[in-house]
């Protein structure tokens, strides 16, 4: 056993990267759930984003355009969910599960010609001056741009939800859609917009895997990341800044257990792997503040 082999700076730097896809998918789902919609199809939207992003990036040679394509693909799939649940009033839990099935199938079909191809390179940014700060520099300021974009999206979402009128409306819709409707807010329109945002973010998260993390297209490559995103939204108590904490905890446990193994520590891997989920449950129980939005998962129908 040699714990000194674990370099804390590198550990935190790779933690930032490991957490990025689930931060992206998680922040999108967080907004969706704050608007009162439970979309369990995150995995489906992520994988579609992964394939769309990869296809666009390969054909245009630009990873940036790839991310754009991924966001569009994810948003379109989310809107399909939106039409079903908001306009045709289908059950959200069942529709979300079906969405995952649909997304996995569609992405596999679309990606058939793209197996074994390498995508364009997406270079790291070494931010001048900031990147040269000891310790903090390598962790915070020498990453690829999507790491910063993900953090900016979280920051923006936090500000939007808490500091803007539109954010207030969105939360009102999520807390009590009937009351919001009475006040004259367009419940369905707000929710569709939230869903599109959620889908776009999930798509970005998926594309982060296919364009940066792996970077290649293979079927089923998200391997359950969408479900982890769902978990961290809950862990976060629907608060953006706590989402970061959750993502680093989940990402951190994976990186940590691999680090401990490599350092020769005999650890029961399965038990360590289940620990973030148990932690989420404990957090749910302890933090009464982690109350779900009032209308979460309920069907809205304006009867008059």
């Amino acid at each position: 056993m040699d714990l000194s082999a674990i370099n804390p700076i590198l550990f935190f730097a790779s933690l930032m990267v490991a957490a990025t896809p689930i931060i992206l998918a998680g922040i999108g789902e967080l907004v969706v759930e704050r608007a009162g919609v439970l979309n369990l199809g995150v995995e489906g939207m992520m994988i579609l984003g992964a394939v769309c992003g990869f296809i666009v990036a390969v054909n245009t040679g630009s990873a940036w355009l790839g991310f754009l394509g991924a966001a569009l693909g994810g948003a379109l799939l989310a809107l399909l969910f939106g039409v079903l649940t908001q306009c045709l009033l289908s059950n959200q839990v069942a529709t979300g599960l079906a969405l995952t099935l649909f997304g996995l199938g569609l992405s596999a079909l679309m990606g058939q010609g793209y197996i074994g191809i390498k995508g364009p390179v997406f270079a790291d940014w070494h931010i001048p001056i900031l990147g040269d700060i000891p310790v903090l520099g390598p962790i915070m300021f020498q990453q690829d741009p999507m790491v910063y974009i993900a953090l900016l999206i979280v920051l923006g979402t936090g500000l939007f939800l808490n500091r803007t009128r539109a954010g207030l409306i969105l939360r009102a819709v999520g807390e009590n859609h009937d009351a919001a409707h009475q006040l004259g807010y367009k419940v369905i329109r707000v929710r569709l917009m939230a869903l599109a945002f959620g889908g776009a973010c999930a798509g970005l998260g998926g594309a982060y895997l296919s364009l940066v993390r792996v970077p290649q297209w293979t079927e089923g490559m998200t391997a359950g990341a969408g479900w982890i995103a769902l978990a961290i939204v809950v862990f976060a108590g629907w608060k953006p800044w706590r989402l970061l904490l959750g993502a680093y905890l989940f990402g951190g446990v994976t990186v940590l257990q691999l680090n401990l193994q490599a350092a020769g520590v005999a650890i029961p891997v399965e038990y360590l792997s289940m620990s973030p989920y148990l932690a989420t449950i404990v957090v749910l129980v302890i933090m009464s503040a982690g109350r779900a939005p009032g209308s979460l998962g309920r069907i809205f129908h304006a009867s008059h």
């Binding site: 790779s14 990267v17 490991a18 792996v214 293979t218 490559m221 998200t222 994976t254 990186v255 691999l258």
Partner: peptide, 11 residues
């Protein structure tokens, strides 16, 4: 599991 394999390699 590409993401996990990438992490393992990095570690």
């Amino acid at each position: 599991d590409p993401a996990k394999e990438a992490e393992a390699a990095n570690v």
